[in-house]
Simulated scan of single mutants.
Amino acid sequence: MKIIVDRTKCTGLGICESLAPDVFEINDDGELVLKTEAVPDGQLADVESAVSGCPTEALRLEQD
């Protein structure tokens, strides 16, 4: 699975970071940084929670 970010929608709220900190990070400028584009083994549930919890719908998952 690949993580797709719509940067025009992302507002840097950090909900994704709180739900999947091994994958998402909000930098000092308030911008989302993906630590990896591919969902790491054992992290799918956390990443799915982050995607569904994004209030701006800036995240989605795509099959490789």
Results as ranks from 00 to 15, higher is better:
8 T>L: 09
45 A>Y: 02
42 G>C: 10
57 E>V: 11
49 S>A: 15
11 T>L: 11
52 S>D: 13
29 D>N: 09
61 L>H: 08
54 C>K: 13
58 A>G: 11
1 M>E: 04
39 V>R: 00
52 S>Y: 10
38 A>K: 02
59 L>I: 12
40 P>Y: 12
36 T>W: 06
49 S>E: 08
27 N>G: 07
62 E>R: 12
49 S>I: 00
62 E>H: 06
36 T>P: 01
27 N>T: 09
16 C>L: 12
12 G>P: 06
49 S>R: 06
34 L>G: 07
33 V>G: 00
27 N>P: 04
62 E>K: 13
62 E>Q: 15
24 F>M: 09
61 L>V: 10
61 L>Q: 10
53 G>Y: 10
1 M>W: 08
19 L>F: 06
11 T>H: 06
63 Q>Y: 10
30 G>D: 07
23 V>Y: 05
26 I>W: 07
44 L>D: 00
49 S>C: 03
41 D>E: 14
21 P>K: 11
9 K>H: 04
51 V>H: 08
15 I>A: 11
47 V>Q: 02
21 P>E: 12
56 T>F: 15
29 D>S: 12
20 A>P: 00
45 A>D: 10
40 P>E: 06
7 R>E: 14
17 E>Y: 05
6 D>G: 01
38 A>T: 03
7 R>P: 02
25 E>D: 02
26 I>G: 04
39 V>G: 00
14 G>V: 14
3 I>R: 02
45 A>K: 04
17 E>W: 10
52 S>Q: 14
19 L>H: 01
8 T>Y: 03
2 K>M: 15
1 M>R: 02
14 G>N: 09
13 L>F: 13
44 L>T: 02
27 N>E: 04
35 K>Y: 09
30 G>I: 12
15 I>C: 10
22 D>W: 12
16 C>R: 09
50 A>D: 03
6 D>P: 01
13 L>A: 08
33 V>S: 06
62 E>I: 10
55 P>I: 14
12 G>N: 00
56 T>W: 14
5 V>D: 09
54 C>G: 06
17 E>P: 06
24 F>P: 01
4 I>T: 05
26 I>D: 10
61 L>D: 05
7 R>F: 15
53 G>Q: 11
13 L>S: 04
57 E>N: 11
46 D>N: 13
24 F>T: 01
16 C>M: 15
2 K>V: 13
33 V>E: 14
59 L>G: 07
20 A>D: 03
15 I>K: 09
57 E>F: 14
43 Q>M: 10
64 D>L: 10
15 I>V: 15
51 V>A: 08
49 S>M: 10
56 T>P: 02
24 F>C: 05
48 E>I: 11
64 D>P: 15
42 G>F: 09
44 L>S: 03
63 Q>W: 12
30 G>L: 13
32 L>D: 03
62 E>C: 04
43 Q>W: 04
10 C>W: 07
3 I>D: 03
6 D>A: 07
60 R>H: 11
54 C>L: 13
5 V>E: 09
61 L>I: 11
12 G>Q: 03
20 A>L: 12
16 C>P: 05
31 E>V: 03
23 V>N: 01
16 C>Q: 11
32 L>H: 06
64 D>K: 11
60 R>I: 04
62 E>V: 14
21 P>H: 14
21 P>C: 13
43 Q>N: 02
16 C>Y: 14
52 S>L: 15
38 A>N: 02
20 A>M: 08
37 E>V: 04
39 V>P: 01
